[in-house]
Write a protein that binds this DNA or RNA. Structure first.
Lengths: 138, 138
DNA sequence: CCGAATCCCAAGCGATACTG
DNA sequence: CAGTATCGCTTGGGATTCGG
């Protein structure tokens, strides 16, 4: 999936009432704090509950449960439970889920690639803001 | 050890200790309800404040202000204010912001493309859940 | 027209404890 | 190990109001 799109020949089209383009649906689904991280981790391979928990620093047991269940419900992740002692449950990406890992990777790549630029922009903005707003902020 | 040895073949793939890959940073920045939608709208061309507000159904005036300011601070959007009467302010994507529109488009495409599949998966899940947990589903 | 400030509620999420 | 239930804090964000 080539997201390399340099051409943004964007006509200032009309109102384009359907501006969300389904993006909202997607954001409602994986716009939360953990969903994408779980997907990325599962993109590396099958993982057990505990492995996911360790692999995603900061996630709580509760949120891991909630997130994985939501992903199962949406058909992006498949769950396999073995009735062994101790219990063992495996999570893996479904074909549907795997079909979006490319985008996630692109996203992560972009983030890492432009992290510095954003940091610089912020520094610049903070300086500018001090000048244009509420003078004497420094 | 007392309990069963749980040494599974845990070499699924690399350790990838750094599992977030900077994704977290990105999500913190545009993981909220409106940021991506504003970016998509601006990908269509320069927009004035009021135009953005109308183009993004449901956004409040407050959130539009907050979101645009954040985007300016991060250097993804540029703002030009004309001291006319009535005031006029234009927002447009910066080169940095423009560099990620391709990913946003890919995201929106995927969402629209697989919306039906997700809906079907949900129906399936809800049925399964009804069997195994006797609990209602939303 | 543009936007900042205040008030306030609901959702998200984390901590903890408990069950199988 | 895997998962559930409860509680309480933190935050996003909607409605409204005031200023430039």
């Amino acid at each position: 999936m080539s997201v390399a799109n340099t051409e943004v020949s964007a006509q200032v089209t009309g109102p384009c009432g359907d501006d969300d383009c389904g993006l909202r649906e997607l954001l409602d689904r994986l716009g939360d704090r953990w969903t994408m991280l779980v997907l990325v981790e599962l993109a590396h391979g099958t993982r057990r509950f505990r492995e996911l928990e360790r692999a995603i620093p900061g996630i709580s047991q509760r949120m891991l449960t909630v997130t994985t269940r939501r992903l199962c419900r949406d058909g992006l992740v498949e769950r396999t439970a073995y009735a062994t002692i101790p219990p063992q449950v495996e999570y893996r990406l479904s074909p549907l889920g795997r079909s979006m890992t490319g985008i996630l990777t692109a996203l992560a790549d972009w983030s890492r690639d432009n992290k510095a630029a954003i940091g610089a922009a912020r520094a610049r903005w903070d300086a500018t803001e001090g000048l244009s707003r509420s003078g004497g902020a420094s």
